[in-house]
């Protein structure tokens, strides 16, 4: 269980990215984090594994207070948190296998990782994960030889190799086509269900989020403005989160859009998908 309490982040320039964000994610729940660009979604999930330092507030994973960790303890906490990145962030020039095994770096000593002699159990597990995401025969290829969807699957396998207690997912579908996006989202949610993993998924595409996640949290200017089941998201809240122009623009760029009917139309579409 992840608990976020009164989390605030102010950058050194004085921009406040997050204001007293509070919510909790129970075991097995997949939370979609929606909001316009710059709302603080990315900052929020990076505060959780401390790639960004929070300014104040508390974040607890199980019994561990993540905010005050340092050095070795921080690394040990990080390995309990798997992260899947926008545009994959694989180490392009390493093989698929090395990318998956890099999920074990927090567990092995430097000399083992340096000589690429990971424990047999890790390698066996890495093969199992690659099989699970459908890339078993690509293990020895270099990561930059794969397609976008395949790379994101490697990213998922890397995060799972950590045997995490929490998944952070940052715009997993940002550079994928609609079909691959659905496949990736389905894979992530299936895996979370299999392992009873809680997950926070930053996502731009509201209909896609509604289709797959258990719960939606809406951020606007660093504040939580919506926190409920996906089907409770209505037109009014969407407008509150994205602002009227912003969110219609993501749907349709045609001239003179009939705002209300379109909004309802897309919501209805989503409703049937669920």
């Amino acid at each position: 269980m992840l608990t976020i309490d009164q989390l605030t982040k102010t950058y050194t320039g004085g921009d406040t990215a997050l204001r007293e964000v509070t919510f909790r994610v129970p075991r097995g729940q997949v939370v979609g984090l929606i909001g316009p660009s710059g709302a603080g979604k990315s900052t929020l999930i990076r505060c959780i594994n401390r790639l960004v330092e929070p300014s104040s507030g508390a974040i607890r994973l199980g019994e561990t207070d993540l905010v005050n960790l340092g050095g070795r303890e921080l690394r040990q906490a990080r390995r309990r948190i798997g992260m899947i990145f926008q545009e994959y962030a694989l180490v392009e020039r390493l093989t698929v296998m090395e990318n998956v095994l890099s999920g074990r770096l927090g567990y092995v000593a430097f000399w083992r990782s340096f000589t690429r002699r990971f424990p047999g159990r890790d390698i066996e597990n890495a093969y199992r994960l690659l099989d699970r995401v459908g890339l078993l025969e690509h293990a020895d290829k270099r990561a930059d030889a794969l397609s976008g969807g395949q790379r994101q699957r490697v990213g998922i396998a890397r995060a799972l190799a950590q045997e995490p207690e929490l998944l952070l997912v940052d715009e997993p579908t940002a550079s994928l086509d609609p079909k691959t996006s659905r496949q990736i989202m389905r894979l992530i949610t299936e895996i979370c269900a299999e392992r009873q993993l809680p997950a926070i998924v930053n996502i731009h595409d509201v209909p896609l989020a509604q289709q797959f996640v258990d719960r939606l949290v809406g951020l606007r200017a660093g504040q939580v403005v919506f926190d409920n089941a996906p089907d409770r998201l209505d037109e009014e809240t969407l407008t509150e989160i994205y602002g009227a122009e912003d969110w219609t623009a993501t749907d349709q760029d045609d001239e003179e859009p009939d705002f209300a009917s379109q909004a309802q139309g897309s919501l209805r579409l989503v409703g049937t998908a669920i």
Binding site: M97, E98, F118, R121, I123, E124, Y127, R128, D131
Partner: peptide, 10 residues
């Protein structure tokens, strides 16, 4: 299904 426990970098 069993998977290999050894892997060498190609």
């Amino acid at each position: 299904t069993s998977y290999p426990r050894r892997w060498r970098r190609p």
